[in-house]
């Protein structure tokens, strides 16, 4: 739905809304009287936080792909596999579907999230209306919903390292990439959470009020 007339927002009405319980208070009220959450009309420095966590997520994603995720030692021989290596390994096991799930969770979703968050943050600085607010909001909601699922690969390594421990015959140990990948997923989740969606709707109306 597009609106020709500016919407009546809590901010325009001189109020500040609580993002938890949806109640509104006079502007400047520090704490919500219903749920006691701290109130801000718009999250302070939202975009700066988004970019800070975004950079941290991208930086930690690099070692996550360079270092081994998992080290398998079989009768003294140690083979290390990276994220991509693990996907190829699954393909060799004729498990194309599972390979696709891991590839999606460990490669497509993280990269897609970096691009999507950067796109939203950049779009907010462009002239009003160049990207419809609903589209930005939908992408942001999707990123928030789907981002956590990238953690799958870390859990795969955790359960395999716990299970496959046949002393000298075969054992699996976690590699350095597990820790950097987990950090990357966490940082990107924080980046998406730092974006106050109310800014998206503000940006689409700038200059129209």
């Amino acid at each position: 739905m597009a609106h020709a007339a500016p919407r009546l927002t809590a901010r325009r009405a001189g109020l500040v809304a609580c993002r938890h319980c949806a109640h509104v208070w006079p502007a400047g009220t520090p704490v919500c009287g219903v749920c006691r959450a701290s109130l801000t009309s718009r999250a302070p420095h939202s975009l700066q936080r988004v970019w800070a966590w975004w950079v941290a997520g991208v930086v930690t994603y690099i070692p996550a792909n360079l270092f081994p995720m998992m080290k398998t030692s079989m009768l003294g021989d140690e083979t290390a596999s990276t994220i991509i290596g693990g996907v190829l390994d699954l393909l060799h096991h004729d498990a194309a579907f599972v390979a696709a799930v891991v590839f999606l969770a460990s490669v497509c979703i993280p990269l897609g999230k970096f691009l999507a968050i950067a796109w939203i943050a950049l779009a907010l600085r462009r002239p009003a209306g160049s990207v419809p607010a609903h589209q930005l909001h939908r992408v942001h909601a999707l990123v928030e919903f789907i981002g956590r699922w990238s953690m799958i690969d870390v859990f795969v390594v955790a359960i395999l390292s716990a299970l496959v421990q046949f002393s000298v015959v075969v054992s699996i140990h976690p590699g350095l990439a597990a820790i950097s990948f987990a950090c990357s997923v966490g940082f990107t989740m924080l980046s998406a959470q730092s974006l106050d969606p109310r800014l998206i709707y503000d940006a689409s109306e700038q200059g129209r009020t």
Binding site: R7, L8, T9, A10, R11, A13, L15, A17, C18, R19, H20, A22, H23, V24, S41, A133, H137, P197, R198, I200, Y201, D202
Partner: peptide, 11 residues
């Protein structure tokens, strides 16, 4: 007597 949408601040 009012509530605001947590996503877009509409009253």
């Amino acid at each position: 007597r009012l509530v605001a949408c947590p996503t877009c601040d509409t009253l």
